[in-house]
Design a protein around this nucleic acid. Sequence first.
DNA 1: GAGTTTGAAACT
DNA 2: CAGTTTCAAACTC
Length: 451
Amino acid sequence: MSGNPPSIVLLPSSSSAASPNPSIQNITTHPIVRPPIIVHQQTIQSPSSSSIPFKSVIVKPYRDSIQQALTTSTNVDVKPVILHSSDIIESHQPNKRIALDSTDLNNSNLTFSAIPKSETLTTLQQIPSSNTVSFATMVPQSSSNSPSYSTLRLVTPSTFINPNEISTIQTSGQQILLQQRGNLVITQPLVTLQVQQDPNSAQKENNSNSAHFPTEQSNTNARISNTDYLPVQYQRKPCNCTKSMCLKLYCDCFANGLNCQNCACLNCHNDARHEEERNKAITTTLERNPNAFKSKMYKFANTTVSQPDRPLKGCNCKKSSCHKRYCECYESRVPCTSLCKCIGCKNTEQSVHPLNVGFYRSGQPKTTTQTPLDQIPRTGPPTETTIPNNVFNMEVSEALATCLLVTGQQCEINQTSDLDSQHAILKEFQRCMHQIVQSALGRPPSSSSFG
DNA sequence: GAGTTTGAAACT
DNA sequence: CAGTTTCAAACTC
């Protein structure tokens, strides 16, 4: 498509009046979906710069991030979406995923920007990039006049990119989904928007909005297509509810604050078509359980102060020894705590996944060979010299490994010498570690580069 | 794939 | 609040 890139303007969900411009479809945000969660913000220079280091690490766990996005306070402005009539929205392809490597991130226009509280508008734009691959860019609208904007820190990039799958904005009935679903960006629940049709042309059911934002594709990008390389825990499991209409917490989709998509459920009301009913159910559920839709298990280990990321409840297992996925603690890969009422528990700090061992270690190093990390005191809240014990969870470990793999692959592609490759990987490791620690300390990572 | 087991959520 | 029922997922065969 030629002309201006399509843009989506997020406006408060309350201002759902039809646009005065008849050529514009009005779309309001999903009532419970908040703006993209910003784990850390970084002010960077103009998005036109191709040297922006977009690749970063989100320390927050996937689930927690989503839930925080869904339940976070409303003090950030949310604006409805405005689609230009000329915009084309691609039909929804639920399992479509996109993964990008660091080159793509560094060379593309892909950024996810924070909406500073002072900002009133945020624009979601799709900008054709110089290499003919389009990415979604979400920038404060004022950025056109401003030399800087805030950037959402992205989870580390995954390995491959399939140019055929670079369609960043999709619809599912009344939903627009931004689906960069590598293990780098968890945007779907964060930028799930509900379409509200122009009243003049509204039909009772919004079925198959088949337009799509055009996606320029590069045939020169010969990377491997693979939609299923994501770790299982990053992939959304379709629910199979038959009786709950997917409006009870039994339904994982509902419990995670997501609409059902590509699920095998029967009589599903957990979708945009039943928004009213769904909202009612959410209200009811929250009345009954104010902690619903929040992460139950995630916690900062070894901290005594109450904080939002501590587990909100414990499990109640009797027969599984807390070693089956029935156990929510086990499934969340956290050891059972004093909050649990389980019997015969074997899900202790000593028995968690090896990759999480460092995570729940209670100050006793496993070996006598201490690393500098081992010497970091592990009690109390994070300070200048300490970090929370749960920094190196599975997600972060995998993200770190992926970063290093990507770096290695790039060296291979560039036919870098072994020595230089080693150097590059070490530098990447250093950079990741720095970011992880910075994130753990609750600071925006420094923008200075290591190289 | 069907049936059973399990534990969370819902209900009383 | 405690006991029971319902539910969907995990598990077993």
